[in-house]
């Protein structure tokens, strides 16, 4: 019973809106759904650089985990990823360019206290509240998940991908690497593998829905899109709404598990539920 949320600013190119604050409100309003972990991914074009950030969790003797960050040029990405994979104490965190992922075990309000989520700006973002069902409560099993295949892909997920072992095995056979025991990671790796193959995000979502089994809703963000996708039977919730904007913030599309999350941020017009099995995608202006 995880809680997920996401939003895409409809700001005609301003791209520097208070995404963090809105996401934080949406997460806190759904806190009752899950309390094991919280995380966000925010996309801000002003962060984009020629180099990439590879972040990892490192287990230390004195503390639980510390987060390391390596900045790397595109030529040295695979070398740095290989180094990280060879270290058994290292757990992959994220592969970023304009995206920033922050995640931690605990509650959403603690995440904000520690990392200042409300102060973060951008064009779009996603958030997650985790209750552990199929994997352990650790920072690296917390959402959002990204991949080492492509930078700037993040997913949050509610439900279960029941055939994830089968999907994971076939993706590993294709040569893609997994870094956690979570069934949700298979969504990120699958989408990245298909974007790499044909470059069509909508087709990638459709292929995933066709292959994945079980009850789920996920929100996936790339640098220029955000999509909410429900399983083909529509067994998990998902709702979309539109906030027409105020003096404080531009209009935006918001999506979440519970209606309360849309209510709290005023995204109460153009309400819709995504059709089961059909990705609903919003692109950055």
């Amino acid at each position: 019973m995880c809680g997920i949320c996401g939003l895409m600013m409809d700001d005609n190119g301003l791209r520097h809106s208070s995404v963090g604050s809105i996401l934080q409100d949406m997460m806190e309003s759904q806190q009752i759904r899950a309390q094991d972990g919280a995380g966000i991914a925010i996309f801000d074009k002003s962060n984009a650089q020629d180099s990439f950030k590879i972040k990892n969790f490192r287990k230390e003797e004195t503390s639980d985990y510390i987060i390391n960050e390596v900045r790397t040029s595109s030529e040295n990405v695979s070398e740095n990823l290989q180094k990280m994979n060879q270290d058994p104490e290292c757990h992959f965190f994220s592969f970023e360019n304009e995206m920033t992922i922050i995640k931690e075990i605990g509650l959403a309000k603690d995440l904000d206290k520690k990392f200042g989520i409300r102060k973060m700006n951008g064009s779009h973002g996603i958030g997650h509240l985790r209750i552990a069902t199929s994997s352990r409560v650790t920072p690296y099993n917390t959402h959002p998940f990204s991949t080492t295949i492509l930078p700037d892909i993040a997913i949050v997920h509610n439900g279960e991908i029941t055939n994830y072992n089968l999907l994971k095995d076939s993706l590993e056979l294709e040569g893609f690497t997994f870094h956690t025991d979570s069934d949700s990671e298979v969504i990120a790796v699958f989408l990245a593998s298909r974007i790499l193959k044909h470059g069509d995000i909508e087709k990638a979502h459709r292929e995933f829905v066709a292959k994945a089994d079980g009850p789920f809703t996920y929100i996936a963000a790339t640098s220029d899109s955000i999509a909410i996708v429900r399983d083909k039977f529509g067994t998990r919730k998902g709702i979309i709404g539109y906030n027409p904007g105020t003096d404080d913030h531009p209009p935006f599309w918001a999506m979440a598990t519970d209606l309360s999350a849309l209510d709290v941020v005023g995204a109460t017009t153009k309400i819709e539920t995504p059709h089961p099995g059909k990705p609903r995608i919003f692109y950055r202006n």
Partner: peptide, 10 residues
Amino acid sequence: VGYSDFHNLS
């Protein structure tokens, strides 16, 4: 075991 497709067994 939680599937909607026979071929998802592993």
